[in-house]
Design a protein around this nucleic acid. Structure first.
Length: 421
RNA sequence: GUGGAUGUAGCUCAGUGGUAGAGCCCCGGAUUGUGGUUCCGGUUGUCGAGGGUUCAAAUCCCUUCAUCCACCCCA
């Protein structure tokens, strides 16, 4: 035997229950977003590295140390660590916002080169949505409302909490930044190592440092609310009022700054206490400056992204079953002589119904064939032997309920199966 | 990138220097046209990999790889 090739770290094969949960979450998100009139967009997995370093921020962990990057003829490209930058690029490239106000959603793999652990993989799945051309905050609230709808449908409304904050507009954010640097610089030597580095690069991120020492220092640090101008304050007030009107519970967390650089105004995160260390299941916010930063016409925009893996884990933790893709009907001929008849029966069912019909193959004794029928998960076995074939019937046996096996004429089979569900 | 734990059958695991095991699963029979329950029988192994110590290593030592959990950070 030749040598086996192990999985690349952080990559997974997904199948059976685990995949069923992930597909279910993706499907509910997709259907819900479509029901709000959002249109799907499919984006490339690989982009120029520069798109991410400019769009997400050179100083963020996601860009500075977590990207899978390789050279494409000395033009560095990377596997996407998130979807927003690509989506904005696509909107700019096709000038999608010129004729309207696109509301888009996407779903797919994202990649970050981190040490894997529960709820965090190097290839993971996100569903996201972005709305372009709206100043908000009505549309920001709609996005949150969409996600709340999904939590309700998934039975997770009680497991997930929403935190919100505002970063203000560009001017307010800049003043806050200056105030923060002025406050923290005298204490520079007392900050943790990461925060010292961020003091120049991205001082806002110091606010959500986990270091106890740093936490004590920032306890009295200036907050964004001290610097909000009238426009920013009105935006955040209306954001909160509209959330309340929609019956969405949210807690203001003034330390919430988000990991990526492009946010402005209202930002938000969904958290859970049930996934060990990985509390965050999703987040988003407004990014009014990003289109211009990436070379497009100025355009206000807002969006969110959800970690599908974490939502699926949460469902597993809550014991919520996802629909699994097993056959409905298992067709087994008892010998080769009835094979052709059995194939005709199976084809008739596939054409006349949406039932999933699996044929038995591989021979074996009747006992083995019946065992295969049971193991397939099908709820019905159609048994076809010499008697049945001679009389143009099938023997219909329910595998999951206690009912007598019955002989059914082929002409009545479809109706019999459809009426029994 | 840092720390801790764990790698033995398809799965869950026991085995701390002396012939590799259990339960579940799987296969066969009881039941030659009927699964799932019951009874009887059977198969399943580079003990993660490489090296060392020893008469003898799954077991002790070294190296390495992988996985999990946590830190950092994030979805």
């Amino acid at each position: 035997m030749s040598e086996r090739s192990p999985l690349v770290r952080g990559m997974r094969d997904l199948y059976a229950d685990e995949l069923a949960r992930i597909r279910f979450v993706e499907e509910v998100f997709g259907n819900t977003l479509e029901s709000y009139g959002y249109e799907i967009i499919r984006l490339p997995v690989i982009e120029r590295t520069a798109l991410f370093s400019r769009g997400i921020g050179e100083a963020t962990d996601a860009v500075s140390k977590e990207m899978f990057t390789f050279d494409e003829e000395s033009d560095p490209v990377s596997l996407r660590p998130e979807g927003t930058a690509s989506c904005v690029r696509a909107v700019i490239d096709a000038n999608l916002y010129r004729g309207g106000q696109p509301k888009l959603w996407y779903s797919g793999s994202m990649f970050r080169h981190e040490r894997p652990q529960r709820g965090r993989y190097r290839e993971f799945f996100q569903v996201g949505a972005e709305a372009f051309g709206f100043d908000g905050p009505d549309v920001d609230v709609e996005l949150i409302r969409v996600v709340q709808d999904v939590w309700d449908q998934l039975g997770l409304a009680n497991e997930i909490t929403l935190e919100i904050n505002t970063l203000g507009n560009a001017a307010s954010r800049q003043k806050h930044r200056e105030g923060l640097v002025a406050y923290l610089t005298p204490y520079k030597d007392e900050l943790d190592e990461d925060s010292q580095r961020r003091l120049d690069l991205n001082p806002l991120r110091i606010l959500d440092s986990k270091s106890g020492q740093t936490q004590r220092l920032i306890e009295h640090a200036p907050e964004i609310s001290d610097y909000l101008d009238d426009e920013s304050r009105r935006h955040f007030d209306e954001f909160q009022e509209r959330l309340a009107c929609q019956g969405v519970d949210a807690t203001v967390n003034s330390r919430l700054v988000r990991g990526l650089d492009y946010y402005t105004h209202g930002v938000f995160e969904w958290n859970t206490e049930r996934l060990g260390a990985q509390k965050q299941v999703g987040g988003g916010g407004r990014y009014d400056g990003l289109c211009e930063l990436l070379g497009g016409a100025p355009c206000p925009a807002t969006g969110f992204a959800i970690g599908v893996d974490r939502v699926a884990l949460l469902q597993q933790d809550r014991g919520i079953e996802a629909p699994i893709s097993t056959p409905d009907v298992y067709v087994l001929a008892l010998s080769d002589d009835e094979e052709g008849f059995a194939l005709d029966v199976a084809m008739q069912l596939r054409r006349q119904t949406k039932l999933r019909v699996r044929m038995h193959q591989g021979g074996g004794k009747v006992k083995a064939r019946m065992r295969a029928a049971d193991r397939s998960g099908a709820s019905v076995a159609l048994i076809i032997g010499a008697h049945e074939a001679a009389s143009n019937q099938v023997s219909l046996k329910w595998l999951r309920t206690v009912q007598d096996q019955v002989a059914v004429p082929v002409t009545e089979l479809t109706a019999t199966l459809l009426n029994s569900n």
